[in-house]
Design a protein around this nucleic acid. Structure first.
Length: 372
RNA sequence: ACCUGUAAUACUUUGG
């Protein structure tokens, strides 16, 4: 049964939910773990409805199952539903409370998260670290630092979170200093520092860390490839890309963007056509590339060809048309979009003001929703 | 003792 549970978990983590379910169904008497692992297979793959149904037929419904389902709602932005689940849980442990904190953090309600943090019965290293990164994430680095120094215990994740906090607030020196004070480091710590050096254009330092780090994973490789691309050195990027031990779709996407930045659309297209598979990001990059140079026909055509869209795909095709002055079509796209975010509004707004329709621009400005 | 839930890193869109 252990082994079968592991198999379910394996299928679930590679997205093969149906196979996971087949294995689950083949078990005569699934245990608590089987139920929870299967539930997790649904939630990790974003299948909220199936997760909910599966939860409902679960005879155990233990603490872990409740928390797993709650987390699924949290990641999808269903704050109220997640909160209701939390309130209805028969029992709660620190992990459930931490999930509640994370619910608010993930939905831009850091204040509320802080309130939960202060009022929860027990705080562990996860609670502290979650709050630390939340504060860093909204630019409150002082509070993040204070939490880091006040927390009763720190583990590797806490150190990495603090490192990342410095990096995303542009405090590279402080990140380097903290890194040098770490008594032990993991791949992630190194990866964060590669990214830190790349973000200030210090490619030499980034590469030297990449070369000397004790162990590299896929993120190390793609971070370095992407660093070269962002610096415009697409040849070094390609050399590193070709040397990668395993291929990664993220590295492919980075290379596509690298060629676009370098203005080499021919190589970009070769890359795109040669990719073993495409993610939504690959398509988005392509649309944005053609939009940038005013080739809205190409952009529109790729948009129509892609199998699934996210908000960025819509914004990219919107931008492609807006930037070419096709205001009418841009408005059509804007209204067709399944949802709009602040980026969509800004694209349409600036298109209207740049092409002289100031009244329209003012109307749009006034129509922007206050939140979200 | 060993299988499940919560915190940390890489790729795409606008402005800053």
């Amino acid at each position: 049964l252990f082994l079968l549970n592991q198999v379910i978990q394996m299928y679930g983590s590679c997205g093969a939910v149906d196979d996971a379910r087949k294995v689950f169904d083949s078990i005569d008497t699934p245990n608590l773990f089987s139920w929870n692992i299967m539930l997790n297979a649904y939630t990790r793959n974003g299948l909220l409805d199936q997760a909910k149904q599966f939860f409902d037929i679960n005879p155990h419904k233990d603490l872990v199952a409740w928390t797993t389902l709650m987390q699924a709602y949290a990641t999808k932005g269903y704050v109220q539903e997640a909160r209701t689940l939390f309130d209805n849980m028969p029992r709660r442990d620190t992990a459930s409370w931490n999930t509640l904190i994370q619910l608010y953090i993930a939905n831009n309600m850091v204040e509320e998260a802080g309130h939960v943090f202060r009022s929860m019965p027990q705080r562990d290293v996860v609670s502290w670290t979650a709050m630390l990164s939340a504060f860093a994430g909204i630019g409150h680095l002082d509070q993040a630092k204070e939490l880091f120094s006040r927390m009763p215990q720190r583990n590797m994740v806490s150190w990495n979170a603090m490192l990342q906090g410095f990096v995303e607030n542009g405090k590279i020196e402080e990140a380097r200093e903290l890194f040098s004070r770490m008594s032990e480091r993991c791949v992630l710590s190194w990866n964060i520092l590669i990214q830190a050096n790349a973000s200030v254009g210090d490619l030499e330092q980034a590469k030297s860390m990449f070369d000397t780090m004790p162990m590299r994973d896929a993120v190390s490789w793609t971070a370095m490839v992407s660093a070269y691309c962002q610096a415009g050195d697409v040849d070094s990027a390609k050399a590193l890309f070709d040397a990668m031990p395993e291929e990664s779709i993220i590295a492919w996407n980075a290379m596509i963007h690298g060629y676009v930045k370098a203005g080499d659309f021919r190589e970009m297209r070769l890359m795109f056509d040669r990719m073993p598979q495409w993610s939504v990001i690959s398509w988005n990059a392509l649309i944005a590339a053609y939009g940038q140079i005013g080739e809205f026909v190409e952009a529109n055509s790729f948009f129509d060809q892609m199998p699934a869209w996210d908000i960025v795909s819509w914004n990219s095709v919107l931008q492609a048309n807006a930037i070419s002055g096709r205001l009418l079509h841009a408005h059509q796209i804007f209204h067709q979009m399944p949802s709009r975010d602040i980026v969509s509004w800004i694209i349409l707004l600036s298109a209207n003001s740049q092409h002289g329709d100031l009244d329209r621009a003012r109307e749009l400005f006034l129509a922007i929703p206050e939140h979200g």
